[in-house]
């Protein structure tokens, strides 16, 4: 009898704790899912594959410093104009570049020739483009800088430069979420 009751009690505890564990795990998944949802939602709203980028180089100084955060849009209907700051990708380079459009030609069929330059560079970007590439096309452009917040990007730069820090921060955050009792 006492054994049965003991089993019953421990069962109860086990069920409780299972619920609690399940709740914590679901809570954790919820946070991950909402982060993903916000990111993908931003992609839909801005039309850009990377709606937020961090400035990594000083080629746009004094406008942008390393660690500044840029918000991008990439609406198909928006015209490209000289003076716009665009983010573009070059074949064979992993990291997209943030520079300003200084030359723009468009044919009647919509074909574009775009030339860019960094504010802090003395020459245009032809040396950065792929060999034999003299112009950017519309498809090379990931987005156009629309909004600017300083310094915030340092967090991701630090995390990328020191992967251990990244795992430490993510690990601690994850532990907090799972272990928090409420």
């Amino acid at each position: 009898m006492s054994l049965l009751s003991m089993i019953g009690v421990s069962d109860e505890i086990r069920r409780m704790s299972f619920r609690q564990i399940a709740f914590q795990v679901l809570n954790f998944l919820m946070i991950v899912a909402s982060a993903l949802m916000i990111w993908k939602g931003l992609m839909v709203l801005t039309g850009s594959g990377s709606p937020i980028v961090v400035v990594l180089s000083g080629s746009m100084e004094p406008a942008f410093q390393r660690g500044d955060l840029l918000f991008l849009t990439n609406y198909e209907k928006d015209p490209v104009n000289i003076g716009d700051i665009v983010v573009f990708k070059i074949d064979g380079r992993d990291i997209p570049i943030v520079h300003r459009v200084i030359k723009f030609h468009q044919k009647e069929d919509g074909t574009m020739k775009i030339l860019t330059k960094g504010d802090n560079n003395s020459v245009n970007d032809r040396g950065l483009y792929a060999p034999g590439q003299f112009w950017l096309d519309r498809k090379d452009i990931v987005g156009r800088a629309r909004g600017f917040v300083p310094y915030v990007g340092w967090l991701t730069i630090c995390m990328n430069d020191f992967p251990r820090l990244k795992y430490f921060v993510l690990g601690t955050l994850g532990l907090f979420v799972v272990l928090r009792r409420e």
């Binding site: 406008a63 000289i82 003076g83 030359k103 468009q106």
Partner: peptide, 23 residues
């Protein structure tokens, strides 16, 4: 306003191109 990037733009149309813009 932290900075103004001031640029002189030339715009024109040609037989080949509907839009030409040059800084």
């Amino acid at each position: 306003v932290k900075e103004l990037f001031v640029y002189l733009a030339a715009e024109y149309q040609t037989k080949d191109n509907q839009i030409n813009q040059v800084v």
